[in-house]
């Protein structure tokens, strides 16, 4: 069953198409990754999915309703740009955010306290919000998106600015909620998270879908065309080597992306002459490589000839 269905969604801002005939579906109980570079139209898409702004064309169907506003009490939303009332007590604030999502006040208050306890903020319940650290405030915002037990939760860059411990806590909560059947839409450009959490993705660029589907299928379709290399010595630039289209070199480890049909044995031979190889493994590509490749290709397509190329490591 689809929790979110977007069809031909289009939005223009003063002549610029921010979202262009976008089409994707999110199945219940999944973690869905909405990916794309800055300015690709992710936030605009999310806002239309929530009914915050109306689309110019196309439809959005959320939880079976063509009007997101009618089911908004069943949706949780953590915007990328988020704030809190500075002069409000933490528990009241959280309860308020729950109440405007339809909870009655006693329930909102009780759940707020429960969440604050769960997030280790029990002793800060009656502090003013501006007395909390940034990380603590993020926890409150995160709880606000889940307080009313929504069926669909849309998180826009949920992990930005989080330290590793809090990231861990958020991920645990997210997975726990997922197990209870909650569907998540995760908008991000942090590819490790996508790799680790998302089951389905939709990659957009300039408001258009570049790639979508189950992550495992997408990766499989790219074949084992990536080389995970561990090496020692000064290898110089791997980019000129036979069959290599892109390189991510970290000094001791590198990932080399092969052109379709390229012979990995040729590459191995060439590498042996340059560096001391400790590991050479053929793998499915990381989502980051796919992302760079697809976005790079899309960017090339959308550029006029003779334009500047910023992303040098991509050679499609």
């Amino acid at each position: 069953m689809q929790v979110l269905r977007v069809e031909d969604l289009t939005k223009e801002f003063s002549g610029v198409r921010a979202v262009d005939a976008l089409q994707f579906e999110v199945a219940r109980g999944k973690i869905f990754g909405l990916l794309g570079p800055n300015g690709s139209g992710k936030t605009t898409t999310i806002r239309m999915c929530l009914g915050i702004i109306p689309p110019d064309a196309g439809t959005v169907e959320v939880l079976g309703s063509p009007d997101p506003l009618r089911v908004r009490e069943r949706i949780g939303y953590l915007p990328e740009e988020r704030g809190l009332y500075a002069k409000m007590r933490v528990a009241d604030q959280l309860a308020f955010l729950g109440a405007i999502r339809g909870l009655d006040w006693p329930t909102a208050k009780r759940r707020a306290e429960w969440w604050l306890e769960r997030l280790g903020l029990k002793d800060r319940m009656s502090s003013l919000t501006n007395e909390l650290s940034k990380g603590m405030q993020q926890k409150v915002q995160f709880a606000a998106a889940l307080l009313h037990q929504p069926e669909l939760v849309i998180l826009d860059e949920p992990f930005s600015g989080l330290d590793p411990i809090n990231t861990r806590i958020f991920k645990d909560i997210l997975l726990e909620e997922k197990r209870r059947g909650v569907t998540f839409v995760l908008s991000t450009h942090r590819m490790e998270e996508v790799e680790a959490m998302c089951e389905e993705i939709c990659l957009i660029h300039s408001g258009r879908v570049v790639l979508k589907g189950a992550l495992s299928e997408i990766k499989a379709s790219y074949g084992k065309a990536s080389v995970a290399l561990e090496y020692e010595g000064q290898g110089g630039d791997f980019r000129g080597l036979p069959g290599v289209v892109s390189v991510q070199d970290s000094g001791r480890k590198a990932r080399l992306r092969l052109a379709p049909g390229a012979d990995s044995q040729e590459l191995l031979k060439a590498l042996v002459e340059r560096v001391r190889i400790r590991a050479f493994r053929l793998e499915e590509p990381h989502i980051e490589e796919i992302y760079l490749q697809e976005v790079g290709a899309a960017e090339l397509l959308s550029r006029k000839p003779g334009g500047d190329f910023r992303r040098e490591e991509v050679h499609p």
């Binding site: 929530l50 908004r72 949706i75 939303y77 915007p79 740009e81 704030g83 809190l84 500075a86 955010l97």
Partner: peptide
């Protein structure tokens, strides 16, 4: 202030 602190989008989500 609600606009500046980006609280507005949290509220407009609800």
């Amino acid at each position: 202030e609600e606009k500046a602190s980006r609280l507005i989008e949290v509220i407009l989500g609800a």
